[in-house]
Nucleic acid binder design. Structure first.
Lengths: 267, 267
DNA sequence: CGGGACGTTGACGGTCGTCAAAATTAGTGG
DNA sequence: CCACTAATTTTGACGACCGTCAACGTCCCG
């Protein structure tokens, strides 16, 4: 059998069975959360620029106005909401999606700890997508006018903001390639490789992961119907490439997944 | 018949038969192009922030290091090129595309006068897509370090840069929706409506346009094969929605196109 | 005027969407 | 803790949409 019990953790690294457990918990002090401090946050290297001076680090702490908890299934923001802040994910897992007038919707991304969410709102001072927590989450609220003010003084921050925006553009180019030219198996293989790579960068296993989203949400992201996603998972299992037990996935053959994404890549 | 001769202009507005003819020509002075000046450019409202003071406008002129002509079929930049500058399109028409390792490629956008190109290069100081002129073009070269320096002093410019990046993210969300959930007819209808809307914002007709790209390039952008694009055009013609003569398109029924994109939108 | 790029159309097949039913799990309230 | 209901997932059968392959037509440019 794949796992002893389905409720058992999947991650092999002890102490990391819960997603993002390695994040410092917030200790209440007199019933109030202690001061937010990027400078002492162990996700800093993921969301903040490197190479800041000590003084700059202190000032960066002011970026975060407060933190906000978001319960699973609850929106962090919705299409049409006024845009005031970007959000850095401390813990939890989000999806962003847009809806067309006639009710179609498209998941535009899945975001995890250390990633920045809300960039879509800058252009019209209003969010154009929904961001929903797929598990209980906590985010750092960074008012955008503070970001703009501070990035005038800290050049590395200005540069960092530009890079974050540009990175999102490049990421979406990749999704366009996926949606525009890949078949179902290629899409799902690329999706799994991307997820596991990002999780690994956060200290999780390279080969095991827990999907936080439904088959339907995966399908929406990949431009497939949920039945196709399910069938494709089953095919991967038949081929011995992965083991799947509900949302627990173990990758048995990473190279096979890579070959699926890149059929004719010789090296 | 549709047009008297195929070489005749399609745009109904006299004096705008050539795309972007309304752009001020660059007058050579002593064999050298005259000084670049955003402050006197009639595309300013498209690429630059509004509401600048006179003094700020003068400084903005320094953003553009020089201009560069790009011949049809020639790249403005290529994947892997070092990133130094953003480019504002003065005249002409571009496509941007990315290639996967195994040779697939995906057109990620078509850009016209007043639009900014090169945003993908910021994150890793290196371009990640190819930008190729689809007709003879001219761009303003804006070194990105100048942009960053100047946006520290001119708040409206900083804000503007953020909005341009965010706008591109939102645009790509729309493309993802199209690629992920629309059928061929819907995709092509959305494509035509988008193109004609952008052209109209530049003073061209609301109902006629000249495609600067091949069926294959349209197909790559829309996630379709060129035959499907061609067939879908033919269907639109059969249905009396558009007239098509090669790359000349006249939209006869805009509402029908909207209905195709948004099948169940009642109002 | 000739060659090459581009576009159109037809026939056919594969991939994936649709519809349906059943199985498994998760969530809720007693 | 358990029972019950809703949500999610799996699997099958079938068909539509679009990709593939091929042939032909048109346009453009030297």
């Amino acid at each position: 059998m794949l796992y002893q019990t389905t409720s058992e953790p999947v991650n092999t690294d002890a102490g990391k069975d819960q997603a993002h457990r390695h994040v410092t918990p917030i200790v209440p002090l007199n019933g109030k959360a202690i001061k937010v401090a990027c400078s002492s946050c162990n996700l800093r290297e993921l969301c903040m620029p490197l190479g800041l001076t000590h003084e700059e680090l202190d000032r960066i702490d002011d970026l975060v106005a407060n933190r906000r908890k978001v319960k699973r299934g609850t929106p962090l923001f919705r299409n049409g909401d006024k845009f005031t802040s970007l959000f850095a994910i401390r813990t939890g897992f989000f999806k962003t999606s847009i809806a067309s007038e006639d009710g179609r919707d498209q998941v535009t991304g899945f975001q995890m700890a250390g990633e920045i969410i809300g960039l879509d709102g800058i252009v019209n001072d209003q969010h154009t997508c929904d961001a929903v927590a797929l598990e209980d989450a906590e985010v750092c609220v960074m008012p955008f006018d503070r970001i703009e003010d501070l990035s005038n003084e800290i050049h590395a921050l200005q540069r960092h903001v530009h890079k974050i925006l540009s990175r999102e553009i490049v990421r979406e180019h990749g999704v366009m390639l996926l949606l525009g030219s890949m078949r179902a198996e290629e899409r799902l293989a690329a999706f799994l490789l991307n997820l596991v790579q990002r999780l690994h960068a956060r200290g999780f296993s390279q080969s095991e992961l827990v999907l936080r989203m439904t088959r339907e949400e995966i399908g929406s992201y990949l431009g497939l119907k949920l039945e196709t996603v399910s069938r494709t998972f089953s095919k991967f299992v038949d081929d011995g490439i992965v083991e799947v037990k509900q949302r627990h996935v173990r990758i048995l053959n990473t190279d096979a997944l890579r070959d699926i994404v890149n059929p004719k890549a010789y090296s």
